[in-house]
Design a protein around this nucleic acid. Structure first.
Length: 398
DNA sequence: TCTGGGGTCCTAGGACCC
DNA sequence: TCTGGGGTCCTAGGACCC
């Protein structure tokens, strides 16, 4: 049989319980125990990841800590160490780059690889086992690898077996292997859409693909979402691994939830300025300029509003962020409300060198200013080292 | 049970222009 | 006594992901 020229060999490589696995390496006494990564010594907040042992008790990522303790009072909760996770990310990625440079990094614990060029030299399963073994022996991490002709199917395949899974999913396997799975296993079906489908009797991917349900599903989620899912499941979605997919940042933001409600305006302004500095530092580090500043406020009823202001020209000044945030706060702060979360963001970003107006009018001043402000920021933030962990495991962990 | 943080993308409505 | 229509930009909200 002739093989299509476009046929590709895509791997999706996914670290198993990544944060917990790193914590086990750092502290081997955690091994085999029911533990989770979150915030030590508090009942507020949610978990980032749960160990496989903890998952047996129904504990998963994004679960409120108090609820997890309810399920398992002896649960161990440890603080996360994000900079460590980044180091381990670099370590396992280095191994993957030995095999190909056609890699799309999807998040800190997973990536897609185009392995098509290996077909003549090595059987895909042999190749995948080799990579798994290298990551396990050299870094100490277990991963699952999904092998398929498209990115979507490869991701579905890597989810099917954990830990150290290795699943091949060809187009002709879709009916047998994918159709029995729940619709919630589809990338893009989340906690709003899933119940909607279930209420209407659409429980499995097979139900979703049944043409008899087509009109019903379109009435529930719209034609665009319907077509999106169908083409992905059929294996007609992208097989292009795009190294640069996430290289251009669209927005930079920070936000924080407070244990006690923020009551005074001056208090809120202080916190927002601190956040503005942190956003600005990342902006400078990425060498971006911005056009839009966004303020986020969430009140005691969990109602969230975002208010933004855009400029006609690209901006690079910390004080523009300060002033805009205060302006927005003046306009939209409601003193009868109590706020539990506040946040600052910038968007409409371009790289400094790509900003025409910017180059034209401000470039000569830019480097001096940038260096001066970076130095000030470094001084200000020197003593702020505490790390807040904010990353969840994969969807299966939830 | 009581709901983190940092992102992306999509949609809908209004303003504005021709 | 009727009030086009397409394109684009902006804002706000929301779903979803890890």
């Amino acid at each position: 049989m002739l093989k299509s020229n476009n046929s590709k060999l895509i791997f999706h490589i996914d670290m198993n319980a990544f944060f917990c696995s790193v914590e086990e390496i750092r502290n081997p006494s955690l091994r085999g125990k029911a533990f989770a990564v979150g915030r030590e010594g508090t009942l507020k907040g949610v978990l980032s990841t749960a160990s496989y042992e903890a998952r047996k008790y129904g504990i998963h990522s994004a679960m409120p800590i108090i609820e997890a303790y309810h399920k398992l009072p002896s649960l161990i909760v440890v603080n996360g160490h994000y900079s460590e996770y980044k180091k381990y990310h670099e370590m396992f990625m280095k191994i993957i780059y030995r095999y190909t440079d056609k890699v799309e990094v999807a998040s800190i614990d997973e990536c897609y690889c185009d392995m098509t060029h290996w077909i003549e030299q090595k059987h895909p399963i042999v190749l995948a086992k080799e990579i798994q073994a290298a990551i396990l022996t050299e870094v100490g991490l277990k991963c699952s690898i999904g092998i398929a002709p498209t990115l979507f199917l490869a991701k579905m395949a890597s989810d099917m077996q954990k830990p150290l899974g290795l699943v091949v999913l060809r187009k002709r396997d879709v009916k047998e292997k994918l159709y029995p799975l729940s619709v919630k296993d589809i990338f893009g079906i989340g906690k709003k859409t899933y119940p909607l489908l279930i209420e209407n009797g659409i429980e499995t991917i097979g139900d979703f693909m049944d043409l008899e349900n087509k009109d019903l599903i379109i009435s529930l989620i719209g034609i665009n979402s319907y077509n999106y899912v169908v083409s992905h499941v059929q294996g007609n979605s992208s097989n292009v691994v795009d190294k640069d997919r996430y290289s251009d940042t669209q927005s930079i933001s920070t936000s924080s939830t407070y244990d006690v409600f923020l009551e005074s305006l001056s208090n809120i302004i202080d916190e927002l300025r601190q956040m503005a500095r942190s956003v600005y530092q990342r902006l400078i580090k990425g060498d971006y300029v911005f056009k839009t500043v966004t303020l986020t406020l969430r009140d005691q009823d969990f109602k969230t509003i975002t208010r933004q202001k855009s400029f006609n020209e690209y901006q690079n000044d910390l004080y523009v962020i300060y002033d805009t945030i205060e302006e927005l706060l003046d306009m939209y702060y409601d003193e009868t409300k109590r706020y539990r979360l506040i946040g600052v963001g910038v968007s409409n970003l371009v790289h400094t060198k790509d900003s025409f107006e910017y180059n034209l009018f401000n470039l000569d001043k830019f480097d001096d200013k940038k260096n001066a402000i970076t130095k000030i920021l470094n001084d200000i933030n020197k003593n702020i080292g505490s790390e807040v962990i904010s990353f969840m495991g994969d969807k299966k962990d939830k």
